[in-house]
């Protein structure tokens, strides 16, 4: 429940003014970089970057530096299977090139794993038919005796 409204006081000739808003600290960016948005710690205005050749050049160089992670050589050996995959290092959204390289590595891993699986199953198959060398061969089972022919007693 809201409290009942207090009776209005008559205003005296001297009205009490609201305290002036606190002055904000002057920021450095608008002073040193007029192209930047003034409000808060905002961002560079793309329009102004495009319009300023020096800023544009700087922006492109920085973007290339950031994107220019050295390309990993294509995988060629079994050791490459367990190397860190590109996605483990990505800390931003991926470019088409990064996705292609990642696909290439995964595809290589899949091919190698398929081959390894085939070889392993083949080995298991051979193993099932292997005869151990350190275990004596079982004695051959004795041949069943031939039933003795019964001579008929002479009548």
């Amino acid at each position: 429940m809201s409290e009942p409204a207090a009776p209005k006081k008559k205003r005296s000739a001297k009205t009490v003014e609201a305290p002036p808003a606190k002055p904000r600290r002057a920021l450095l960016a608008p002073e040193l970089n007029p192209a930047r948005a003034v409000e808060g710690v905002a961002r560079m205005s793309l329009k102004d970057v495009v319009a300023d050749p020096a800023l544009r050049k700087m922006g492109v160089e920085l973007w290339r530096q950031m994107r220019g992670t050295p390309e990993a050589p294509p995988p060629t050996s079994v050791e490459d299977l367990w190397k860190q995959l590109p996605s483990a290092r990505l800390n931003s959204s991926s470019t088409a090139d990064e996705i292609d390289r990642y696909r290439e590595r995964l595809s290589f891993r899949a091919t190698m794993l398929e081959a390894l699986l085939e070889e392993t199953l083949h080995e298991l198959d051979l193993l099932a038919r292997a005869v151990p060398a350190d275990v004596p061969e079982p004695e051959p089972a004795p041949e069943p005796e031939k039933p003795k022919s019964r001579k008929r007693k002479a009548a």
């Binding site: 040193l32 970089n33 007029p34 961002r43 560079m44 922006g59 920085l62 973007w63 950031m66 800390n91």
Partner: peptide
């Protein structure tokens, strides 16, 4: 890594001289 690009995007560039 990515720090200089972040600075650029946030406008932390001194443009008072001839070169930024």
């Amino acid at each position: 890594k990515g720090g200089p690009a972040l600075l650029f995007m946030l406008g932390s560039v001194d443009r008072s001289g001839e070169e930024p």
